[in-house]
């Protein structure tokens, strides 16, 4: 322990800050997310086990190209948010802001792709409760149900991520997050990487069944 444990403000007052504690809280939250999505992956696994052939048939409807493009977009946005943290740690505020803006743009691009992807499905009459879908066999209905719920919940996380990253971006611009105090940026980065991680599994399980 040293005197550096306390951040010293301009007035020389000691402000208590516990960065490891903050990060621990964030990780605990991420584990609840892991169990939330884990439960869905479990349902997916059981139904795929029971309806292997119908899952393959239903998956042919999905566009592998759009899925691959969105995978590359999310992986790249994970890179830029990581670069934003390093940049800020090295005291390069401009580079950090630039990388965060790129991350947010990628996230929005992901959602735009998702919008068009879902629109195409809807125009083919495939949406929850639609006549075309309910007339299909059980396995196919389950596949599309899981597809909409899992990519939908993931999409919701992307939207929340955009809000979180925008909030952090504003704090950096206002010098509330600095090279000395960047735990909020780090924790938001962790959240964003989790969104990427979930997608790493959603992608092969929905788009790459042939």
């Amino acid at each position: 322990m040293s005197q550096n444990d306390h951040a010293v403000t301009a007035n020389d007052q000691h402000v208590h800050r516990d960065d490891i504690g903050s990060k621990m809280g964030m990780w605990l939250f991420l584990f609840t997310e892991l169990l939330l999505f884990g439960g869905m992956f479990l349902i997916y696994a059981v139904y795929r086990f029971q309806h292997t052939e119908l899952f393959k048939l239903a998956a042919l409807e999905l566009d592998t190209a759009v899925g691959t493009l969105n995978t590359i977009i999310l992986l790249t946005s994970s890179l830029t948010v990581a670069l934003a943290i390093t940049a800020l740690q090295k005291g390069n505020k401009f580079l950090s802001i630039l990388n965060l803006v790129i991350t947010i743009v990628f996230a929005l691009t992901f959602m735009v792709n998702k919008f068009f992807e879902w629109s195409v499905k809807f125009s083919h009459g495939i949406y929850p409760g639609s006549e075309d879908l309910t007339s299909k066999q059980n396995g196919e209905i389950l596949f599309f149900g899981l597809y909409y719920v899992m990519t939908g919940l993931h999409g919701l996380h992307v939207v929340i991520g955009v809000a979180l990253l925008t909030y952090v971006l504003v704090l950096i611009i206002k010098n509330k997050i600095t090279s000395e105090n960047f735990i909020k940026l780090e924790n938001s980065g962790l959240y964003w990487h989790l969104v990427d991680l979930i997608w790493i599994f959603l992608f092969p399980l929905f788009y790459l069944i042939h």
Binding site: M1, S2, N4, D5, A7, R17, D18, D19, I20, A82, T86, Q89, K90, E180, N181
Partner: peptide, 11 residues
């Protein structure tokens, strides 16, 4: 040292 701010590993 458990100092979280000044020994942070920068990738």
């Amino acid at each position: 040292n458990d100092n979280s701010k000044h020994e942070h590993h920068v990738t």
